[in-house]
Structures are given as structure tokens and as C-alpha cells.
């Protein structure tokens, strides 16, 4: 290998690193360093004026596992994810298939479905607060027309989490629909015609052609929905504040409470680390297992 050749390769490598540097610096400052710092903080005890912080190893995690509220909150979050993710994805798919068909007022339908996405979550939550309010809320008023008794949807442990789920689904389905709609429009109309000529019914075409071609989109939406099921808790602050008796409390809300209401930073740090571990494992599963079975064009 000649010398100028080696020089050029080195120059290329330096060039590559230079291009990577800005992103690397930002990610290190705002993602990697905080992650490490959080993990580090979760290994120390909570400092008070008389007892300074000391290294306690995994004691914070032990404390967390002994905390019944933590388990309740984890269970809540699991149910919340288990309901909102599939329902909002299925709803998004159904709406996209409908809004992509040749229907009258198609753009009106699309806009209507997309409107909830444009609203800030706080505004949406306030809107739904008005729907759910016992007595003069919209749901109760409609119920009263049919002689139903007043229900305090957000105020009782049995219904509070479900009421929160409904708001999330309402908010997310329209957003996911846009992705499905975009993906549907990249499917050439020829494929439908070819399937038609081969004798495929509309159902067979949807099941054998459309759904497999939408798989990459579904995967993308799934990742987003999963992240949102942990991340999106704005509406809890307006609707229930996690209550009643922690019935609608989700993990991130509990972390926030621990850190900024109970001032127990090490507990919050430990919980954050656990959450990151679970999310990381899920992302790995999606990208390494599901991704392989998905057809990308």
C-alpha cells in the first residue's frame, strides 16, 4: 500500500469523525451522561443535613421492590400499555383504510381524524375533564337522556385508569392514522388491480397484500406507541393526579412524585434505571426479532 493512499484513508477517517462530532457531543451531554449519572445516583442513599449521602449499593432497588405502590404503578402501566397500544393501532389502521378509500368528503374525514393530534395533551385533557365531570359533564348529560345514573368516571378506582386510557387512544389514533395513510398511498394501485384480476376479494387483498406491506409502518408505530405509553403522562396532571388511591398512577408520574414531591431522588433514579432497562430490552426485541420478519421496499 502506497503512502499517499494511507494518508488519504486517514484523512477520510478524520473527516468522518468530524461529521459525527456534533451529534455525539449533544447526545453525550443530554442522553448518555444523564443515563450514567442517574445510574450512579441510584446507588447512593438519600442525603439529609445530618446524614450525608453514602454508597448503599442496590439498597434503593431493594426498597423499591418492597414498595407495594411501585408494583401497583407498574401493573397500572402494563394495563395502560396493553390497552392503549393495540386499540389505538387497530383504530388508526381502520381509519386509514377508510380515509384512503374513495369516499365523499375524504379530506374532511382525514382532517377530522387528525384534529386530536394537533391539540396539546393538556388541552385535550381539559376537554375530556369536561366530558367526564359528574353532573354536568357531556357523558353524564347524554346518559341522563337515557335515564342512566351519574357516573364519576375519574373519581372511582374501578374506572379512573380506563377513562385515562380512552383519552390516550383518542389522542394517538389520529396521529398513527397519518402514518398508515402515507404508507397506503405508496402502494401502487396496480397491485390492487392485479389482485382483483386474480380473483382476490377485498378482504383477501387487504389481508395478503396491504397488511404485509404496512408492516414496516406498524413496527414504527408500535415503537412510538410503546414509548408514549411510558412517556405521555401530561393528562394525568389534569385528570386524576394518579388517584384515586393510586388507581390511575403511571410509572413516570410516580417517578416525578418521588423526585419533586417526596424529594426522594435516589428512589426516582432507581426507578428510572429500571424503566430504561425495560424500554431498551423492548426496543432490542423489536429491531432484532420483528424487524427480520418485515418486508422493506
Amino acid at each position: 500500500m502506497s503512502d499517499p493512499h494511507r494518508l488519504r484513508r486517514r484523512a477520510q477517517a478524520i473527516h468522518g469523525w468530524l461529521l459525527l462530532t456534533p451529534a455525539l457531543a449533544m447526545l453525550t451531554t443530554f442522553a448518555f451522561y444523564p443515563t450514567v449519572a442517574t445510574f450512579w445516583a441510584s446507588l447512593f442513599s438519600r442525603g439529609t443535613r445530618r446524614r450525608p449521602t453514602e454508597f448503599v449499593g442496590l439498597e434503593n432497588y431493594q426498597r423499591l421492590f418492597d414498595d407495594p405502590t411501585f408494583w401497583l404503578v407498574a401493573k397500572n402501566n402494563l394495563l395502560y400499555a396493553g390497552v392503549t397500544i393495540p386499540v389505538s393501532i387497530l383504530l388508526a389502521l381502520a381509519m386509514a383504510l377508510w380515509a384512503n378509500a374513495k369516499i365523499p368528503a375524504r379530506s374532511f374525514v382525514r382532517t377530522a381524524y387528525f384534529t386530536p393530534t394537533v391539540l396539546p395533551m393538556i388541552a385535550a385533557a381539559n376537554l375530556w375533564l369536561f366530558f367526564y365531570t359528574p353532573g354536568f359533564g357531556v357523558l353524564d348529560q347524554i346518559g341522563a337522556l337515557f335515564g342512566a345514573a351519574s357516573v364519576n368516571w375519574l373519581g372511582q378506582p374501578e374506572t379512573a385508569l380506563w377513562a385515562v386510557c380512552v383519552v390516550t387512544i383518542w389522542k394517538e389514533a389520529g396521529f398513527f392514522m397519518i402514518f398508515y395513510l402515507a404508507a397506503l398511498q405508496t402502494i401502487p394501485p396496480d397491485l390492487r388491480e392485479a389482485a382483483q384480476i386474480e380473483g382476490a376479494s377485498r378482504l383477501a387483498y387487504t389481508r395478503r397484500i396491504v397488511l404485509p406491506l404496512l408492516m414496516p409502518t406498524t413496527l414504527f408505530i408500535l415503537v412510538n406507541a410503546m414509548i408514549n405509553s411510558v412517556k405521555l403522562i401530561d393528562h394525568l396532571f389534569i385528570l386524576t393526579k394518579g388517584g384515586p388511591s393510586d388507581a390511575s398512577k403511571l410509572i413516570l408520574y410516580y417517578i416525578w412524585e418521588n423526585a419533586f414531591a417526596f424529594f426522594d431522588a435516589p428512589a426516582a433514579a432507581a426507578m428510572t434505571v429500571l424503566m430504561l432497562a425495560v424500554l431498551g430490552a423492548l426496543a432490542a426485541f423489536q429491531f432484532f426479532v420483528i424487524d427480520r420478519r418485515t418486508h422493506y421496499r
Binding site: 401502487p188 392485479a194 384480476i197 397484500i209 406491506l213 408492516m215 418486508h295
Partner: peptide, 11 residues
């Protein structure tokens, strides 16, 4: 029918 784009199912 044979289409101009062939209309093969890509997946």
C-alpha cells in the same frame, strides 16, 4: 393481465 409495471407483489 400483464401490467406495464408488472404489478408483482413486492413482499
Amino acid at each position: 393481465m400483464v401490467f406495464q409495471s408488472y404489478a408483482l407483489f413486492p413482499h
